[in-house]
């Protein structure tokens, strides 16, 4: 028992040769976000507040593909999406197609709390953001020179790139990426607080060179994000595989219907249900256990539990 938190910054084909100037700032962000989450949990904050807080921090960091670091659509614009879910009540909120909202995750929470709906998208979501008075900026403020370059490379390679600038032609091609050092990904956070309340939040800029209007797994409840009274899950990777695998809900379903532990359920979903190279997830259980499996080369991830365990890693751990 006790609180637990896990964070991810995306799963994908992250090369072991990732240079330190790319790796270190991302690890530092994970560490900082983990500390923010831990401090909030120690201060008895509710899990829902903690996941929102941590994901906001990740959105504000340009090193990950969410909020400020969001990758660009084929039109050179940013279209962000996010979702959040509370385990006890299964209340949830989601947004897609945001171009001016600084923290999409907070807008998702407002959809959950201030509307009769769960999911708002594009112009309607932007109008709702104005109504609610959340912080917005000019759409061009999200466009970083690094992401312009990334889009250029993607267009030259004529392919839609996954969060991690991994080539995803129809099926995975295994061709080396043209941009092997710019590994960035979706972000997510799952938390169980000391009262056993679970919550999950996920946020992303989507795919490099994605078609305008493309929606991935991140805002889809049951795919990228899910929480109930047993566990909270946030998934990352190839959105289409995660949607058809209803990955986040399936972790919970295996616990509920087959009596698996969170570690067993998460491992089963990642290694048996989703094609290799496609996905990773972070999950916590109501008992305070953590699981962070992935079937990609790596996943930026971090976790901490009340009994003092802490981990920050990218690639599989050496036994």
């Amino acid at each position: 028992m006790g609180w637990a938190i896990a964070i991810h910054g995306g799963a994908g084909d992250i090369p072991l040769s990732l240079p330190p100037e790319r790796r270190l700032p991302r690890e530092a962000t994970l560490r900082r976000c983990l500390q923010i989450g831990v401090a909030a949990l120690q201060a008895q904050k509710h899990s829902l507040d903690v996941v929102e807080l941590v994901v906001r921090e990740l959105e504000n960091c340009p090193h990950y593909n969410a909020g400020k670091g969001s990758v660009l659509t084929t039109a050179g614009t940013v279209e962000m999406e996010a979702s959040i879910m509370e385990g006890k009540t299964k209340r949830c909120g989601a947004v897609s197609g945001l171009s001016t909202v600084v923290n999409p995750i907070s807008l998702a929470r407002l959809v959950m709390e201030k509307t009769p709906h769960i999911y708002l998208a594009f112009d309607g979501a932007e109008a709702f953001a104005r109504e609610q008075g959340v912080e917005t900026v000019d759409p061009s403020d999200f466009v970083t020179s690094e992401n312009i370059e990334r889009l250029k490379q993607a267009k030259e390679a004529n392919r839609v790139q996954i969060d991690y600038t991994q080539p995803i032609t129809e099926e995975r091609s295994g061709i080396p990426t043209p941009d092997g050092n710019s590994r960035i990904g979706t972000v997510g956070c799952v938390v169980v607080d000391e009262h056993g309340n679970l919550a999950s939040a996920t946020s992303t800029g989507g795919l490099v060179n994605k078609r305008v209007g493309r929606i991935g797994d991140t805002p889809v409840i049951g795919a990228g994000t899910y929480a109930n009274n047993l566990c909270a899950v946030s998934a990352t990777g190839k959105g289409e595989a995660i949607i058809r695998g209803t990955v986040a809900r399936d972790v919970a379903a295996l616990m509920e219907y087959k009596g698996l532990s969170v570690k067993e359920a998460a491992a089963y979903v990642i290694h048996e249900c989703v094609p290799r190279g496609n996905a990773g997830l972070v999950a916590v259980s109501a008992k305070g256990e953590v699981a962070m499996p992935f079937n990609t080369t790596g996943m930026f991830r971090a976790c901490a539990t009340e009994d003092g365990y802490e981990e920050i890693a990218i690639w599989p751990l050496q036994d």
């Binding site: 305008v212 493309r214 929606i215 991935g216 959105g239």
Partner: peptide
């Protein structure tokens, strides 16, 4: 290559 397209992007598609 996607599963879900919405709003103006869907109209364009």
């Amino acid at each position: 290559p996607h599963s879900y397209i919405a709003f103006s992007g869907a109209e364009e598609f």
